[in-house]
Deep mutational scan, measured.
Amino acid sequence: AVSDRLIGRKSVVMEAISPQNSGLVKVDGETWRATSGTVLDVGEEVSVKAIEGVKLVVEKLE
C-alpha cells in the first residue's frame, strides 16, 4: 500500500503534537495528521512509526 512506504520515513512537525491532540507533519512534501505519545514542537524531526486509519503515529528522532 502507498501508506506502507511512509513507515520509517523522516518527517518534520508542522503543527505541534501532544498525547491529547493530534498535529500535522510533512512527509515527502505531503502533509499528514499525526499523533504521538509525547509532546512534539513545530520544526522537530520525527520518524513515522505506524499508521492508524488516516493518521500517522510518529516519535522524535534520537
Rank of each mutant, 00 (worst) to 15 (best):
S3V: 11
K55H: 15
E30G: 06
P19M: 05
I7G: 03
L40W: 06
V57F: 08
S22I: 12
W32M: 05
V42C: 14
T31F: 14
E45S: 08
V57E: 05
G29C: 11
I51C: 06
R5C: 14
K60H: 06
S18N: 08
I7S: 04
L56D: 01
E44I: 08
V48E: 02
R33M: 14
V13I: 04
A34F: 00
L40D: 01
A34H: 01
G37Q: 13
P19F: 05
S11R: 00
E30K: 11
G37K: 13
E59T: 08
S36R: 00
L6E: 04
V12Y: 09
V13M: 02
K10D: 09
L40R: 02
E30H: 10
R33E: 14
K26W: 14
K55L: 15
L56P: 02
I7N: 04
V12A: 03
S47T: 15
E62L: 11
M14I: 15
A34K: 01
R9Q: 11
I17G: 03
E15W: 06
T35C: 12
N21L: 11
A1F: 12
A34M: 00
V39P: 11
G8V: 05
V27S: 02
L6W: 06
L6A: 02
V48N: 01
R5E: 09
K60F: 04
E52H: 11
W32L: 04
S18G: 09
S3F: 13
K26M: 15
V58M: 03
V39W: 14
T31G: 03
L40I: 11
E62R: 10
I51F: 07
V57K: 05
V39T: 12
G53L: 03
V2H: 12
S22Y: 10
Q20H: 12
V27W: 03
G29K: 06
T35I: 14
S18T: 13
A50M: 07
A1D: 12
L40Y: 05
L61R: 07
R9Y: 08
G29F: 05
V12C: 11
L6V: 05
L56Y: 02
V27Y: 04
V39D: 10
D28M: 09
V39G: 06
E62I: 12
G23W: 04
S36P: 00
I7V: 09
T38R: 07
G29S: 07
G43P: 01
V12W: 08
D4N: 13
V12M: 08
K10T: 14
K60C: 05
E52R: 09
S11L: 09
L40Q: 05
S18Y: 07
E44R: 03
A34G: 04
V39A: 11
V27D: 02
V42P: 06
S47H: 12
D4Y: 09
V42K: 06
V27P: 02
L24V: 10
R9F: 09
A34Q: 02
R33V: 15
G29N: 10
R5H: 11
I51Y: 06
L24G: 03
R33W: 10
D28I: 05
G8D: 06
D41E: 14
V39K: 11
E59W: 06
S11I: 07
A50I: 04
V12E: 06
A16V: 08
V57W: 09
G37C: 14
S18F: 07
G8N: 06
S11E: 05
